[in-house]
Amino acid sequence: MIIEKIFNSNAIVARDSDDRELVVMGRGIGFKKSAGEMIDETLIEKTFILKQNDASEKFKLLLEDIPTEYVSICYDIIEYAKNMLNTKLNDYIYVTLTDHIYNAIKMFDEGLENPNPLIWEIKKFYPKEFQIGLKALEFIEDELNKKLPDDEAGNIALHLINAQINSSFNKVENVAEQTKKIHDILNIVMYTYGITLDEKSISYERFITHLRFFFQRLNKKEQLKEVDDYLFKKVKTKYKKAYDCMLKIEKYLETELSNEEKLYLTLHIQRVTQT
């Protein structure tokens, strides 16, 4: 493995025998070294292989400004998240989360608060990601001796959610907006029916999952597979209250939904209100 660039004593860019570019970290790995020299591979502690070129370039820029201990902590958080969620995360998470945590700690050191107005919704709709966020706060406290507030667990969770469903850079604000809309849609359903939804029911869980993917489709302008027109008319007539509720949601979203989206939203509303 050959050194291409040295950021500091603990972080370098290298190229391996397969001609892949890697960011490599380890205590003293770049100390008294120069580009073109071989790496002492026994010093390697963490290796970043970012397949997206744009993410790789931004990550390298980040390393020039952010202390390596922050990068190392975020690496551990991301690896932990991958294992717990059992899913792939977009490469940009290494950029966005590292940058976020670095700035969050700077604000913490300056005595500034960064409250998360969606903390309740995140706990409710994304419990796995929020628990990982809480674990991340433990990592930070163990390594840096800084106890960040639980609101930061919510912010970290948003980055993890974003890394699962978005392929573009810096879209955490979209996830926050979607989370608020899900909350508002649930309120529309409860207000229409005058009920409290059973958050432990399978129907509720399926409805939340449907809404999460529903917003992804809207953002990507994707369409569900076309449904039989007869089925749509039958559901519209049979579940009139659920259909009327769906129309309120369509009005709230200020967008014209396809018959397919209308059908599935109506069916989910019907199920979640009958459990």
Rank of each mutant, 00 (worst) to 15 (best):
S203V: 02
F7V: 14
A153H: 02
K32I: 11
E254H: 09
Y252H: 08
T209E: 10
I202V: 11
Y193C: 02
R15P: 00
K146T: 00
E45Q: 11
D229Y: 09
K147W: 07
G133T: 04
L22D: 09
Y239H: 14
M246H: 01
M1W: 04
D99P: 06
Q178I: 09
A242W: 01
N155P: 01
L61M: 14
Q223D: 10
I165C: 02
S9K: 15
G28N: 15
Y264S: 01
V172I: 13
I249T: 08
D54A: 15
G133A: 09
L267W: 02
E110I: 02
N174P: 04
I185H: 05
V172Q: 11
E141V: 05
A242L: 04
S9C: 12
V235M: 10
D228F: 05
L97M: 08
N10W: 09
I161E: 08
L186H: 00
Y252R: 10
P149N: 06
T196S: 14
F169I: 15
M84I: 08
N8F: 13
N86E: 07
P117M: 10
E250L: 10
K146Q: 08
W120A: 13
V227Y: 04
D16M: 11
D228C: 09
A176L: 13
S9H: 15
T275Y: 05
I73S: 03
L197T: 08
A176M: 12
